[in-house]
Design a protein around this nucleic acid. Structure first.
Lengths: 333, 333
DNA sequence: AATTAGAATGAAATCGTTAAAACAAATTTC
DNA sequence: GAAATTTGTTTTAACGATTTCATTCTAATT
């Protein structure tokens, strides 16, 4: 491995000069700098990031933490997140991926190891981790889950508003008996989406029976089961809002199995707009959550924060989009 | 930040002794070791990995490289891979994720940066990268794509065998006119899967018309288009094998759109067994590719290789499983 | 010619760790 | 009981970079 000392020897200068030249220090004569840069290129010099890190007390890595990698993290999700981040991230930072639930010692999460941390949070249970990071003084951005704490940089999608818009649309299409299959208990997203649903009902003065709220857990399987339960009600709903697309797919499947027509018999709205939403039969009407955008924006915020830790934290809301496809019927009122 | 020197001062020994004690060096008296360990714990000592890396010439990171993060990497895929790796990986290694297509300077991929590299390869185009890594002397395992080079550790699924088994099954069910929607040109997996298909036909002395081979590219969209083309043939096939599930879903969609019954009118077999395969209507018969297993096995191999670079490279084949569901009709011959 | 300011470079210290070599004390060997 | 060995520890030197402080060189000013 070639080091700055090797370059120094060839160039006939001290390694200090080489270091300065290569780092754009203005004290170096242009002539000298050019010569050194040329030699460095010829010798195929690669800076040793460990040495750099040691003296600069920077790690050149930023950590991406999911609530859990093993479970609950839906597939398309992870890709979008990594995509979004890699887009915004400078080349000499590297991105490491972790599951919060598999961290054994919180102590190992230190400023020395991470220049910045992105938390793709899906549950309240992440708070312990989040506050550890904050206490440790590591620049931090929490994505995806709304935090109450105004002291933490937070980027989320406007789930409540998105659902509100979708249900408004459903009501405008003539639906009056609306049910919901809820997300996993304890996840902030579950309550946000439910709130949007309730808000819309309230605004239109529609009653809601507790029978119409089924407890899913974001899994395809739970969507299937809960849909069966809703269909079996004495007065079944005309529209079911599923708190994510996975459950909507499970729900559609339950309908096929029992010969219930979509949207003829019952209408369906999902949430997320996963890749497959477009290709279900009929194509799923759903709320697009801009995960890649959230991640990209979050990464930009993190970079700002790393450059100047004094920046006041803020909450950014990223807008969702209602993707109108074919699973909501227009009813004659 | 507390360092070994701080510990040394408190314990009244030299920092070297502390280093040795903390690293399980047998030269240290048990009594001394215990004392040092206790103090380290009390002082909340966190080893500085950069300093360690610098002197040990190890980076404590292993790199996971995808052909591309932006495109072509199917979603479920990425999760399974990371899941598999995190399972097998020691806690003080960290995993960084990259897209091969977004590397600007191959030079930055050096032994100094990576203790080991896993390549989740999907295309021949990765070869340049792979050989760079090999030349650089970084322990390397290539996953997912079969390599000809016996000098490189390689873990792949037995795609050809898996397809062969599936088509044998289809033929046993009475199918005689079998078509295939192929994967993306240039991907090894495409040719492997086609070969399995052809092998089975040959073994059963079935003719294959070139009309029956449609050129897909692994996208849902291409599955849709190619299925339409196959259905429009004067003598359409009774069964279509799609080289992945995404295309099978596109194909199903095309059938719905044109009122073609599955499996009544045409049968379908996919490949991958993605999460949604089970929930299509009807449920998709497909070949399960054990991505998580491949990744886990690959990681284990990589760890072995990192410990002893002399280990002779080998090819590991991981078996696929035929998931028989509802998209293949039994025909009366 | 002597003085001096400023530009350009170099020497040496530093970051936190491991490791080779040196040393001291305790134990064994003859 | 002196020499040789073992055991436990310290001293010193790396690793490859940045940075502080000192020094040299150049050119302008007196």
């Amino acid at each position: 491995m070639v080091t700055i000392k090797d370059i120094a020897k060839v160039a006939g200068v001290s390694h200090t000069t080489v270091s300065r030249a290569l780092n754009g220090n203005p004290l170096i004569k242009k002539e000298t700098r050019d010569k050194i840069e040329k030699i460095a290129a010829e010798l195929n010099y690669i800076p040793n990031f460990n040495a750099k890190s040691l003296v600069m007390k920077k790690s050149y890595t930023i950590g991406l933490f999911f609530s859990s990698i093993d479970q609950g993290t839906s597939a398309s999700f992870l890709v979008d997140v990594i995509k979004g981040i890699n887009h915004a991230l400078d080349e000499n930072y590297s991105l490491t991926v972790h599951g919060i639930d598999s961290i054994k010692h919180l102590d190992s999460i230190s400023p020395q190891r991470f220049d910045g941390i992105l938390v793709m949070s899906q549950s309240d249970a992440d708070n312990e981790f989040i506050y550890h990071v904050k206490r440790a003084g590591i620049p931090l951005v929490v994505l995806n889950r709304h935090l109450e704490d105004p002291g933490i940089m937070n980027v989320v999608s406007d789930d409540k508003g998105g659902v509100r818009e979708a249900i408004d649309y459903a009501i405008a299409q003539g639906h009056r008996r609306l049910a919901m299959i809820e997300g996993r208990a304890g996840f902030k997203s579950s309550t946000e989406r439910k709130q949007g649903f309730l808000d819309s009902l309230l605004a239109h003065s529609l009653a809601s029976s507790s029978d119409y709220f089924a407890a899913g857990d974001y899994s395809i399987e739970s969507g299937h089961q809960m849909m069966n339960r809703l269909l079996a009600l004495p007065v079944p709903p005309t529209l079911v809002f599923c708190a994510n697309d996975d459950m909507a797919i499970g729900a559609m499947n339950a309908c096929y199995a029992t010969g219930v027509a979509i949207p003829g018999h019952v209408s369906l709205i999902g949430f997320d707009d996963i890749v497959f939403a477009k290709y279900t039969n009929p194509a799923l009407t759903t709320i697009r959550r801009p995960i890649a955008d959230i991640s990209e924006l979050g990464t930009e915020k993190l970079i700002e924060l790393m450059q100047d830790p004094q920046i006041p934290p803020e909450q950014s809301l990223v807008k969702t989009t209602l993707m109108i496809r074919q699973t909501v019927a227009k009813l004659e009122v």
